[in-house]
Design a protein around this nucleic acid. Structure first.
Lengths: 205, 205
DNA sequence: ATGATTATGTATCGATCATTACATAATGGA
DNA sequence: TCCATTATGTAATGATCGATACATAATCAT
């Protein structure tokens, strides 16, 4: 089936990528339609025809972000041989991702929409869902560590995962406050200093 | 000198406190003038006459927050006998403060305004200044620990302080995501598991 | 060539944003 | 009592918000 009607004159993927970076920099509420259309190089009717609404555009932008920005962070969870190596790599790659020259500092999933009380309620809920998935991914990796013997049996993987995700989320704030790549890396190392105490303390012995 | 003219019919301190809680819940950008006047129980001309502008009101609200909401968190830094006890208490009291029934979850200083690109640039800068002061307060307490002998000489207090503040900032996100008081407490404990590794690793031996 | 279909640019929609003019009301000082 | 001063409520300001109406342009199927 071929396309009918007048073809669009802009690259949808490219426009979406630009919108994603604007949402990343300014947040859902901070990125106005005027900002978006200017950044995307299109007029608002084209935006609405191609994406539906600001909210739908944001949803697509978040999906693009999760899919293309630093997937290595999550790939590390499965690639690294032990759970400890996996989390260490997860945090180290986060430090890199949050401090890329030419890209907004920190994480869209964390900084994109924090307050659900206003018109950005749906955007906030979508990001919250993503954050919950991220906790789950780390938790699952820790469980695998138990199964493979490199994490003490009985470790409270949920609690441990939430701790490391909390550090990662704090790193977004730090990155926005101007923390250098070296400082973010030190934070990752600092969090790993808690590993032995964490998996030891929450394990049944 | 006595007051002249018609006296105001509302309690300025009470109105400011209500505004603070609204900013705390919705953020600077998320709290509209209509929201504020409704919550404060006054009309906009009264608001402007008493506080000057939305930005000035926010500044006063942030000051009130820092002064009255959980000052015990910062008092603990000077009260506790050792730097380790001080940081542990700092985090434990943070967990309490971020999960008070009837109050917004998390911290106004962290969640109030994260994006400086929009109209909330000044609000964002003010909060950033507060966060920098908070790092400095913990760093100073760690330095005191060195002077008093309970922290290894040569410890990189700046790095260690930034780590614990990062966890505290991440706890604001977690609190907003619905983390219970118990979960926040577990995060505080988890961070303390990094103490020995952190102060040991960054100390010159 | 004609018509159905889809995209584009201009121009605008009502709603909401922060802020303020203005007339009126209530106080103290003279 | 009269005036200067300050606060209040109503109503409006221009700007910007997200979202569209509408006429025109460009493609495909027939």
């Amino acid at each position: 089936m071929s396309q009918r009607g007048r073809p669009r004159t802009f690259d949808r993927d490219d426009a979406l990528r630009r919108a994603m970076e604007l949402f990343w920099e300014k947040g859902y509420g901070g990125a106005s339609l005027a900002d978006l259309t200017e950044t995307m190089g299109i007029n608002s009717p084209s935006l609405y025809a191609a994406f539906g609404s600001k909210q739908a555009l944001f949803d697509e932008a978040v999906d693009l972000y999760a899919r293309t920005e630093s997937p290595e962070i999550w790939e590390a969870l499965s690639v690294e041989p032990t759970a400890r190596d996996a989390v260490a790599s997860f945090l180290r790659l986060t430090a890199l991702s949050f401090s890329r020259p030419g890209k907004p500092a920190g994480c869209l999933i964390v900084l994109g929409a924090l307050h659900d009380s206003d018109a950005s309620a749906e955007a906030c809920a979508a990001l919250r869902r993503h954050r919950a998935e991220n906790v789950e991914a780390v938790r699952a990796r820790l469980e695998r560590g138990i199964a493979e013997g490199d994490v003490p049996a009985g470790t409270d993987c949920e609690t441990v995962a939430r701790f490391f995700l909390t550090v990662q989320q704090g790193m977004s704030i730090q990155a926005r406050d101007g923390a250098t790549r070296e400082r973010l890396h030190a934070l990752a190392e600092g969090a790993m200093a808690a590993w032995d105490g964490l998996v030891g303390a929450t394990a049944t012995r």
